[in-house]
Design a binder for these strands. Structure first.
Lengths: 342, 342
DNA sequence: ATGAAAGCGCTAACAA
DNA sequence: TTGTTAGCGCTTTCAT
């Protein structure tokens, strides 16, 4: 019994050449039905599994894509990866995951790994600590298809899939205005990350569109964490004129704010409104439930893969039109911001 | 300029043979420092990246492992994968992820994919719908290292990493007893999955150890979901003698129970105690915070990989001692079950 | 419809 | 210390 049968093994058993077996296995049109049958039968008897490594080396295609995320543990990215995986598998592609842990060094290592593995394409959500983009231009120079999702970079011209963060923030802020809150603050995120920058812009635009004066002291730069949310709330509540609502750039920050506000015996949403962003899982289970903006994570994953696949399949054609898919944010108004009945 | 430089390209530039370059790149001891230097310099000038596909074909090692999880979106598995990834990358291994979506068919497909990709080893957490294990014995027959984590199967003799579910359940139940609850029910999970079976056993043992009579009507078989948790609670509350505490086999079930109990204006933990299992992220953010059992997910991932690596590296040696790592569950007593001051 | 032969890029045994 | 040679398993022209 052969431990790992090869095409040659099958060929020998049938007194044909490896080429014939290869063709039979890949359903080549000019192979007789009888040989196909017999090849298939011997293959299954020998428990033959195709060797993709050999096939990849020869054909230059690995049917693997690489995905770099800041962390697989953050629900958002886990969910996007889920979306990527699902479509990828449908199309016969496998997915390699690499976590950058938000550092530039890991991100570079991830790219190196993927290039060495000769993946057919790469999907990246840029790390917080990444400023230098030479590793990405490197990928481009090697003509390996590359698509950014969520965390993009505008300096370098790479196709991307994002949601409209500006619009999401605008909707969130305007919702708080609609609910009758008068002094709306914003707990923002790291401004060099585009999504957070855009959310701040959306917040400011919503104020402006409603003739509300922007107050610098109503901005607190938080850091995607419960703790910084608490600090944000402490800051806001210490002001001479404290806000009566906060739009947080991200759900964990919103959660921290909620905890701090509750600790101060301020009632939510009656006296204080809160909106988050990201639709993390916990939001609908906390008390009060957290209003937030859903980012269509699974769809984002699916779209990212489809865009990448498109690039992979049309690599040769120089239709390098800069592609960009912008998904629509979906507001979820829950208890933390709803003081009017809908 | 060569798009993708190979070892031969470097060799030609230096008038040496590919073999020399290969050795220089892999730091072979018998290569002079000068040649190493020059090879490295030319390599970087040509932007050479090693072709792992070719290397794998030749060496028979891919430095890739495959991981099959029921779903990457469930926090528990995402977190384990995180642990796997971290150690794997440290050891120079890459990780392929495959989601079974709890179905047997996908699981088989995942195994096929991994065997075709010639991964060096496979890590699996068995799907809910899997009863037939021939695909696993198949892997074993091909001498591909295989390790189960969390969701194991006792019929087939495969090394595994699990936590002591029995003990966790015992601790959870006894804690409720300690807190003075008198009628403790159990919302269990699918019994053909070993972890849930063991948790039920642990529950029963704890009762017995404390001379509490087991009541069949205090068992409700839930289904790892908020909804089934609600149904469980509704069932328990409808009993002639309703319980005053529930140990749920899993956090989402516990959450459903909590929602239903709160909806009935029953105070937690004063009138009703709840314990979950899994330490899902939301538990510490809901009101009241959920007491639960932590499963050491990241550690589980790390241990799983280490065990697999050990098998990979000692493949030839026939020291096929059945390995099993059992991690210790860590109780987290929070508001939902603490009515005595600690 | 099938065979012959070459080669993808790398590594490793054997020579020198 | 470096070269020679062969081959991992598969695909793919070019023949027949």
């Amino acid at each position: 019994m052969i431990l790992r049968a090869t095409i040659s093994n099958i060929a020998k058993e049938l007194n044909v050449t490896p080429a014939t077996v290869s063709r039979a296995l890949s359903n080549h049109p000019k192979i007789s039905e009888k040989t196909k049958k017999s090849v298939l039968s011997v293959a299954s008897r020998l428990n033959y599994k195709p060797n993709k490594v050999a096939s990849s080396l020869r054909s230059g295609k690995t049917f693997m894509i690489g995905v770099i995320v800041p962390s697989a543990e953050i629900n958002f990215f886990g969910s996007v990866v889920h979306g990527i995986e699902r479509v990828a598998n449908t199309y016969g592609y496998n997915v390699l995951i690499y976590q950058s842990n938000e550092t530039y060094e890991h991100e570079v290592k991830g790219i190196e790994t993927f290039l060495a593995a000769r993946v057919d394409g790469i999907l990246v959500s840029i790390a917080k600590d990444t400023f230098n983009c030479s590793h990405f231009t490197d990928v481009r120079n090697r003509k390996v298809p590359l698509v950014f999702f969520d965390r993009t970079n505008n300096d370098i011209n790479i196709p991307s899939v994002v949601i409209d963060d500006y619009l999401g923030a605008f909707i969130a802020t305007e919702h708080l205005i609609d609910q009758g809150y008068k002094n709306i603050a914003h707990a923002s995120g790291p401004q060099h990350i585009k999504v957070f920058y855009d959310r701040l812009k959306g917040y400011r635009s919503a104020l402006q569109a409603n003739n509300i004066k922007f107050k610098p002291e109503y901005i607190y730069q938080a850091n995607i964490s419960i703790d910084s949310g608490k600090k944000a709330a402490a800051h806001f509540l210490s002001l001479a004129q404290p806000p009566d609502a906060v739009f947080a750039a991200e759900d964990f920050t919103a959660l921290g704010i909620m905890k701090e506000v509750k600790a101060n015996k301020i009632r939510i949403p009656e006296e204080f409104g809160i909106m988050g962003f990201a639709n993390e899982l916990f939001g609908e289970h906390i008390t009060p439930t957290l209003s937030t903006i859903d980012q269509q994570t699974v769809l984002m994953g699916e779209e990212s893969f489809k865009m990448l696949l498109n690039l992979i399949e049309h690599k040769s054609e120089e239709t390098a039109v800069q592609q960009k898919v912008v998904l629509c944010p979906i507001p979820l108004f829950r208890e933390s911001s709803l003081r009017k009945k809908l």
